[in-house]
Amino acid sequence: MRGLLPRPSGADPLVSGRSQLLRVGGRSVAWLPPLVLLFLIAVVDWASGSSFRIISWVVLVPSVAAAICGLGGTITAAVLAVVIYVVEDRAWPHQYRTGLPDFVLVVLGGALAVLVCAVRLRGERRMLHMQDIVETTRRAVLRPLPPGWGGLDHAAVYLAADSVARVGGDFYDIQPSPLGTRVLLGDVQGKGLGAVAAASALLGTFREAAYHEPLLDTVADRLETRMRRHIRYGAAIGRDEDDRFATAVLLGFPPADPGHVEFINFGHEPALVVTPGGIRALPPGGRLPLGFGDLGGRPPGAVRAPLAPGETLLLVTDGVSEARDTAGRFFPLLDRLTRAVAADPGTAEPGRLVRLVRDGTLRHCRGRLGDDTTIFALRRPRPPGEP
């Protein structure tokens, strides 16, 4: 899963978030461009003679520092610019000096650059603080899954269409229980905080119901009820939730039947079973999307399908299936998987499979995702000693 690396206690968030492009060997070299510019201006001014005095251009030096350096670096650049200006200008005869007006320009330019740098750093601190809040929210919705959680090998990646917000309506989780491991993946219609709130509500219900309820059908009913309650609550507080719904796939791995999987599909893309020998799709298992359950009759029960240990289930949201290239063509997921597995059967391993789909999707749409994208792969491990 995507996430921020933990920051050392007491570390300056501004230093942690600063661009790595101006670092060499872990050390900042942001001071180098202003220093080089200052040196070049001084050399050119001295070498060009009295007919082309450019020493007042040193006013650019603190401006460049304000854009890439910290406050201390910008103050240093401003002071150095004034010092170099005074020293070099006074080295010329009186009639060739640029004089007081340019000196005032350099001093004021340096002072304004320091002010701009302070404003920039304050904005960066606020932005990093907001990113930390968003990351905390995302991790609360999409909790980290330990390796082997629920007795399953798994791998997942979540890519938000909004690269700044980094959170959306996609959701997934694995819930171990005494009745077998249950898995949920889904996509709430819409974007923004409303979609995040709906995803959080569904995940909370899933984690409780999947642990306590003996039947997968009952877990599905609880999810449907929770979605309708969430819609009614949103309407009661004045939010427009009338068209809110969620597509999802609910899976159950019965401990007494390791050769099969149970599932209920709420209008979502069917899961794919990826094996070294080929790819097949699970049956549709059709229920209406969550939130629309009252529009149909009695919902169908869980579907049981063969799934041997070592066979990988791949679940994706429509950020993958609806990714388009510049010509408007959809991402050919099944074709890419078929060719990749045929070339290397080891591609069916969950981690490699998720990376393959992620990289293929991003290349296909050139990094411009039209929707939040989740790629989730899981499988029962083979018994020890079995190839």
Rank of each mutant, 00 (worst) to 15 (best):
G310C: 11
E241W: 11
C117A: 09
D170V: 07
A340Q: 02
T74L: 06
R380M: 04
R143F: 04
I231H: 08
A160D: 10
R239K: 14
G194P: 02
L314P: 08
G252I: 03
R228Q: 09
L128E: 11
L112F: 05
V273N: 00
F263S: 04
T218G: 10
S50F: 13
G328R: 00
L179G: 14
G25P: 07
T247M: 02
R120S: 01
A165Y: 09
G351P: 06
A67Q: 01
R304Y: 02
R339A: 12
D221R: 13
A155N: 05
G17K: 05
D359S: 02
S56R: 12
V196S: 02
R244Q: 14
P147Q: 13
V273E: 10
S16F: 05
L282Y: 06
V106I: 14
V86Y: 14
Q131N: 12
A201H: 03
G109A: 00
P345A: 06
L215A: 15
G267M: 08
Q20G: 15
G310M: 05
S48T: 11
D132K: 00
D242Y: 15
D242L: 14
A91G: 15
I264H: 03
D170E: 11
P384I: 02
P34H: 00
R18N: 07
F206E: 07
D221L: 06
L108Y: 08
G150R: 00
G72T: 12
V157N: 14
V59G: 12
P254T: 11
T317M: 11
L22R: 08
A220G: 15
W92F: 15
W57G: 15
T326N: 00
Y172P: 07
I237D: 09
R23S: 04
L203Y: 04
A42R: 07
A236C: 12
L314W: 00
P176Y: 09
P384D: 04
R239T: 14
A197G: 12
P309M: 01
F253G: 07
W46P: 07
L179C: 13
F103G: 09
A11G: 01
V15W: 05
V274M: 03
V119I: 06
